[in-house]
């Protein structure tokens, strides 16, 4: 039966998806099929809205897959994709290792403390992301605070070279994305029924076994959400590697920047973006399918 209220409820998220994802993606896809040119904007063919059908036909006849062929012919792009995915995977692992204990401690603390702790996790968002990453330059530099502290305390004799290496990139990423890992895990742990742990212990589990067999599996949705929230933006990360990383740090965000700015080749830049999206979306869809099937099997 037609229900306007229900239609409205569905319409809101779908129009969001349509206007903020599909339309921009369509534009990027269109540019990725065109050719670079010296004009404003710097690609051809361009759509002339007054030309009617003829213009649309002309637009489509100008499309080709040349840019995607170009990507496949140069191993630079694959190396950059792989290196980005690798950096993102390591970052996910590191944020999980650091973030889970934080979320766990927060969830186990007394109830009057929780809002304060939650606030402390969110607090860094009140300062610009750029300034926070920039601050790490001052901390990690060869004359930076960290090296000064280590030299002063006698741990090292020569300043450590951290800035402009992949180490600095990992430190920056873990620092920046930690809240995205902590918050979803905390949300699942907070709702965890304490009776379950008691029951496990009554049935002979040690505390660690109870944690491993009860707490961790029950917080799985939070862990998965946190991992995606960290993994997806880190793959395309540009600011952190360009500020903290060295020239050797190869990431797809940087390649995209080069295509767009140094080569002023918007079509190839768009093709890089389209492939990046496919690389991210296909495994995520497959993963969700598999999850759904597992859930159905359980029921």
């Amino acid at each position: 039966m037609f229900n306007p209220r229900r239609l409205f409820l569905i319409l809101v998220p779908y129009s969001w998806l349509f206007f903020l994802f599909l339309v921009p993606f369509g534009i990027v896809l269109k540019i990725s099929l065109s050719d670079a040119a010296l004009s404003i904007p710097p690609y051809t063919p361009q759509f002339d809205p007054e030309g009617g059908w003829a213009a649309i036909r002309e637009l489509f006849s100008g499309f080709d897959l040349e840019n995607f062929i170009w990507l496949s012919e140069d191993n630079l792009y694959w190396k950059a994709y792989l290196s980005s995915v690798w950096i993102a995977l390591v970052s996910v692992l590191l944020t999980l290792l650091v973030g889970y204990p934080i979320a766990y401690a927060m969830a186990r603390s007394s109830e009057e403390w929780r809002p304060t702790l939650l606030m402390l996790v969110i607090l860094p968002f009140w300062t610009s992301f750029l300034i926070r990453v920039y601050a790490w330059i001052g901390i990690l530099g060869s004359n930076g605070y960290l090296n000064q502290l280590l030299l002063w305390s006698g741990v090292i004799d020569e300043p450590l070279v951290i800035l402009n290496t992949n180490w600095a990139v990992y430190i920056g990423i873990v620092y920046t994305y930690l809240p995205f890992m902590v918050l979803p895990i905390y949300a699942t742990l907070e709702k965890l029924d304490g009776d379950l742990l008691e029951a496990a212990e009554d049935l002979g589990c040690s505390r660690f076994q109870a944690f491993w067999l009860v707490t961790v599996p029950l917080s799985r949705p939070g862990i998965i959400a946190g991992c995606f929230l960290v993994f997806i933006p880190v793959v395309g990360e540009f600011v952190i590697p360009s500020l903290l990383g060295g020239s050797k740090t190869l990431m797809i965000g940087k390649i995209l920047w080069d295509e767009f700015f140094s080569n002023r080749d918007w079509p190839v830049a768009s093709a890089v973006a389209v492939v990046l999206l496919l690389i991210l979306i296909i495994p995520i869809i497959l993963f969700q399918r598999q999850q759904q099937r597992a859930q159905e099997a359980e029921q």
């Binding site: 670079a36 630079l76 020239s247 050797k248 740090t249 190869l250 080749d265």
Partner: peptide, 19 residues
């Protein structure tokens, strides 16, 4: 021109990153 620019940028990336 565009072709030469791409050639030079590609070379530059290779020099900087080694790939």
């Amino acid at each position: 021109d565009l072709k030469t620019q791409k050639f030079v940028t590609r070379m530059w990336t290779k020099i900087k990153t080694g790939s």
